[in-house]
Design a binder for these strands. Structure first.
Length: 772
DNA sequence: TGTGGATGCCTTTTT
DNA sequence: GGCATCCACA
């Protein structure tokens, strides 16, 4: 067990404690994942069977990385038998194998958030309620909250407190919506994300012998990011480890930032009350950041009342002070960051991937993106639409879902008229109404339209029958045909991409690309399964069950991809960067105006703590006097949190040049060279070593308009307006195309309109005329 | 059944 | 400012 030498004293103690409950409080950068992986490796090397260890994480990525590291320590043949994964994936697996006990089949669909909301929306409509008052998103949150706290539809309905609260918020019929929603999910043989946890609890509660079976299988239970667990997760873990109490939870209360999703920080704060014999371990040495950064973060989090006291320290170098800059507009802020990145990259041998720009809200990325692009700095934005959220992908997957589970109502609604086959909303409403009156699924009505007296004309009935038969044929093949082969057939037969093939627009091309990409993913998935698990054939439902639990968060960062990272603070948790910029440190933004109660303010403070502790060497904070938001300029004050950081760790940078001039005379996106030149001179973030402005070299490159290095957005080869060609725009006049790209499936061009500036235009909107 | 103009609304989002 | 949604119309 040589590998234990890699650990420090407190890490080692935590790893070696294997009997009885333990709580490991792991400060930022203290080697939390290391303790978990080594603990599991330690158990395995002591002869514990991998199949008796349950390790729960919050992201697939975390699970994947941990399994990989354990594999490196003890061998892949052992690590592959670990029960390691997200709460949702592990318990969906268990629910599938016990499905008949709770009235589902093993091929149940998992509804994603948009499926859930769309179902709730139709229920609200059916009940003839006003969706301005009964907002689907709002009702969904209420249901989600209830499920996370283990209130089933029945117990919600019977609970006078909920009725009182809902009446107070003017939505007294929420309980009916919840009841109908639950019924419809069951009818559709579907579970939403929250159901996976709720149903697991119900399964264990109503079937003691099943609970016992899993208590027996899992001899050791480990949980990562315990501060982010909700009540449903807390109880599952508690029940499973009830007999032996060999439970180890790891987390950091100071990094609990997901209460809005039901996470309950009390789970970690009160762990020692729940498990009376729990041993507490604190990992207090931070290996990531400079002393200044660690001390600054400590002084900030110290202002929170709710926390487990700990003394995080660093033995790294003291490092630079945190620079706090004040600017006039969000635009200057973005430009300043871009300049600072260029500066540091040159002077401190940073790569682009050593930088991260963190913000409170996704909408702040736009202005940042613009500034980086103008400076030819490659970047990658995390968040936003993931691959699996794209329309064409959701459409194809809806076919897979419906074929795999004929009762999947949301899938059916999505594709019954896509591609268009003359089944309109009127017909769909009739179908839906008929299904509701007989309390059956829409598919059941389709299978016997006469019996259910479906009131449609012969032509429509014929179209419906055709659609039904097409799906039914595939459904028969699903247990026989290989996933990839079937998926290919489905895509071809249904004509999802056939119409896209006709026109050669960039949008349809990228749509076809994406569908091809999906097919490729299915192919790779089956090949991996065949190789690793020795399966002869991989069926489509297996792919489906995995894909519904995937998120964009799961794409791993490519180390060879040298780009600046742009993301929300939430998304940055667990990551680290040499230099971090925290932008928009203003009241009404950070803390979010939605945070009102003291508890919510504390969570925002923890969020700021997370942001600061991402930095290894340099941390830059900025706030702006004005910010362009929701179509208007808002003025704001510096965030109250700045005062929470001990002044000795901060360096306020005065920005006299900006203060002396009025921004009002400047066009926001004006590319005027004089303005650019001024901006270059005004880099308020001084480089860590010297305060000189950027080089003329960069400036001339800018003037030469070298294309953005952002190859994330693929250049369009057969663009309508090739790079270098001239076009005419109704407002901007004549311009030269300097770059074409595809962004979210839309063809985009950067066009230089001379004195009117460089504009980034979406070709489907901009009516351009090509000049030769 | 599909479209286009007017209207209304915006946080964060591990699954 | 930008997107989704809704209603009016072809």
């Amino acid at each position: 067990m040589d590998f234990l030498n890699d650990l420090n004293k407190s890490q080692l103690e935590a790893v070696k404690h294997t009997d009885g409950p333990s709580l490991v409080i792991a400060g930022a950068g203290s080697g939390k994942t290391r303790v978990l992986t080594y603990k599991i490796a330690y158990l395995l090397s002591k002869g514990v069977s991998p199949a008796s260890i349950l390790a729960l994480t919050f992201t697939n990525k975390a699970a994947r990385e941990m399994r990989k590291r354990i594999g490196e320590l003890v061998g892949y043949q052992t690590s592959k038998y670990l029960w390691m994964g997200t709460f949702h994936s592990i318990f969906s697996r268990i629910l599938r194998s016990e499905a008949q006990l709770i009235g589902f089949t093993k091929d149940f669909t998992i509804y994603d958030t948009s499926d859930s909301k769309s179902l709730i929306k139709s229920i609200i409509k059916e009940l003839q309620l006003d969706d301005k008052i009964y907002k689907p998103g709002n009702i969904f949150s209420k249901i989600s909250f209830a499920k996370n706290n283990l209130f089933s539809a029945q117990s919600y309905f019977d609970n006078p407190d909920f009725l009182k609260a809902d009446t107070h918020s003017k939505v007294p019929r929420t309980r009916e919506i919840y009841a109908i929603y639950a019924n419809r999910c069951k009818q559709a043989n579907a579970m939403d994300f929250d159901d996976l946890l709720l149903q697991t609890n119900l399964l264990f509660r109503n079937n003691p012998e099943i609970l016992e079976k899993y208590q027996h299988i899992f001899n050791f239970v480990l949980v990562d990011e315990y501060q982010d667990t909700n009540f449903a997760q807390y109880l599952i873990v508690k029940k499973l480890s009830e007999k032996h109490e060999r439970i180890c939870v790891v987390g950091d209360d100071a990094q609990s930032i997901y209460s809005f999703r039901g996470a309950n920080i009390d789970n970690i704060l009160k762990f020692q009350q729940t498990y009376q014999h729990a041993t507490l371990f604190k990992l207090e040495q931070n290996y990531r950041s400079t002393q200044t950064i660690v001390n600054a973060a400590n002084s900030l989090i110290d202002k929170n009342a709710k926390q487990i006291k700990k003394t995080i320290f660093s033995k790294e170098k003291v490092g630079n002070l945190i620079q706090v800059s004040n600017v006039l507009t969000d635009f200057e802020e973005a430009f300043m960051v871009a300049n600072s990145i260029k500066d540091l990259k040159r002077k401190e041998e940073h790569s682009y991937k050593d930088f991260a720009v963190l913000y409170r809200t996704n909408s702040q990325s736009r202005v940042m993106e613009e500034a980086l692009r103008k400076q030819n700095i490659p970047y990658r934005i995390y968040g936003g639409l993931s691959f699996y959220q794209r329309k064409e992908i959701k459409d194809v997957i809806a076919y897979f879902r419906l074929i795999s589970n004929n009762d999947d109502e949301e899938a059916l609604k999505r594709i019954i008229n896509y591609p268009a086959r003359g089944i309109g909303s009127v017909t769909l409403e009739k179908l839906s109404a008929t299904a509701q009156t007989h309390n059956v699924s829409i598919w059941t009505v389709l299978s016997d339209m006469l019996k259910y007296n479906l009131n449609v004309n012969a032509g429509t009935a014929n179209k419906l029958a055709q659609f039904r038969d097409m799906i039914a044929v595939f459904s028969q093949q699903i247990q026989i045909l290989d996933a990839y082969e079937l998926a290919n057939n489905i895509v071809k037969t249904t004509g999802v991409i056939a119409d896209a093939m006709h026109d050669k627009s960039a949008e349809s091309l990228s749509r076809i690309d994406n569908v091809q990409e999906l097919l490729k993913a299915i192919y790779e998935f089956s090949e991996t399964k065949k190789n690793e698990e020795g399966m002869d054939i991989v069926l489509l439902p297996e792919f489906l069950s995995e894909v519904s639990l995937l998120t964009d968060q799961d794409e791993t960062k490519d180390e060879n991809d040298d780009k600046v990272t742009l993301m929300t603070v939430h998304a940055s948790k667990g990551l680290e960067f040499r230099t971090v910029y925290i932008v928009g440190m203003e009241e009404q933004l950070f803390p979010s105006p939605f945070a009102k109660s003291p508890d919510e303010i504390e969570e925002e403070r923890r969020l700021f703590y997370v942001a600061i502790t991402r930095a290894e060497e340099n941390c830059f904070i900025s706030y702006s006097k004005s910010r362009f938001r929701n179509g208007q300029t808002n003025f704001s004050n510096p965030s109250r949190f700045l005062k929470d950081i001990d002044n000795q760790y901060l360096e306020y940078i005065q920005n006299e040049v900006l203060d002396s001039r009025s921004t009002s005379s400047f066009n926001r996106w004006d590319d005027d060279i004089e303005i650019e030149r001024n901006r270059f001179r005004q880099t308020p973030f001084r480089s860590a070593r010297s305060a000189t402005a950027s080089s003329t070299q960069q400036f001339s490159r800018k003037l030469m308009k070298i294309n953005s290095a952002d190859d994330d957005k693929k250049t369009v080869d057969n663009a309508r307006y090739p790079v270098g060609s001239f076009v005419k725009h109704a407002i901007f006049g004549i311009g030269k195309v300097i770059e074409t790209s595809i962004s979210n499936g839309n063809e985009k061009a950067e066009i230089d309109f001379g004195e009117k500036g460089v504009k980034s235009l979406l070709l489907k909107f901009a009516k351009l005329e090509k000049l030769d």
